[in-house]
């Protein structure tokens, strides 16, 4: 077998190649996460992990569970579509533990203007005012109750 003896060194390199490949396959077997490929080419468990992230905004219905009176007032007025946390901020902690976590006080001077300051860029049918001229220096809630802002509404206490 003269032919083999003179080409056996090629097998040595091939063996090196095969060893690297085998090592790769062994390592791969242990390293690839178990849920990889469960739904597609990704780690299936990542879906659950993303879904388990903490919630900060409790959501309108959580607020209305307890604050039934305010929810009813709001529902009857112009701000029916504005959810509680849009002004009051993220309050999931408050919803989970109402006694110990209290929502911060709000500054209507900032809040109202954020939406209602006049600008040519806003839709024409959206109520907007030039804040400086509109109230003559009075704060918004002198005339408008935030939960039911139309002036004729006396429903809110």
């Amino acid at each position: 077998m003269k032919n083999f003896r003179d080409s056996e060194h090629l097998l040595r390199f091939a063996f090196l190649f095969a060893m690297v490949l085998a090592l790769f396959l062994i390592v791969r077997h242990f390293v690839v996460p178990k849920s990889f490929g469960e739904y597609g080419h990704y780690r299936g468990a990542a879906i659950g992990e993303t879904a388990a992230r903490p919630i900060h905004f409790a959501g309108q219905s959580a607020c209305a569970t307890c604050h039934t009176d305010i929810a009813a007032t709001k529902q009857a007025g112009m701000h029916a579509g504005v959810h509680c946390e849009a002004c009051h901020g993220p309050l999931a902690k408050h919803a989970a533990d109402p006694a110990s976590v209290q929502p911060p006080k709000l500054d209507t001077a900032v809040l109202c203007v954020r939406c209602h300051a006049a600008s040519a860029a806003k839709p024409k049918n959206f109520p907007q005012v030039a804040a400086a001229e509109h109230s003559g220096g009075l704060v918004c809630e002198t005339c408008h109750h935030p939960h039911s802002p139309a002036i004729q509404s006396e429903g809110a206490k």
């Binding site: 003269k2 032919n3 003896r5 003179d6 080409s7 056996e8 060194h9 090629l10 040595r12 390199f13 090196l16």
Partner: peptide, 18 residues
């Protein structure tokens, strides 16, 4: 050399071909 020690004419020709 991966332990290879063959320098025969034929083995070098194999290298060439490969």
């Amino acid at each position: 050399s991966l332990g290879s020690n063959n320098t025969s004419e034929h083995s070098l020709a194999v290298d060439e071909r490969a």
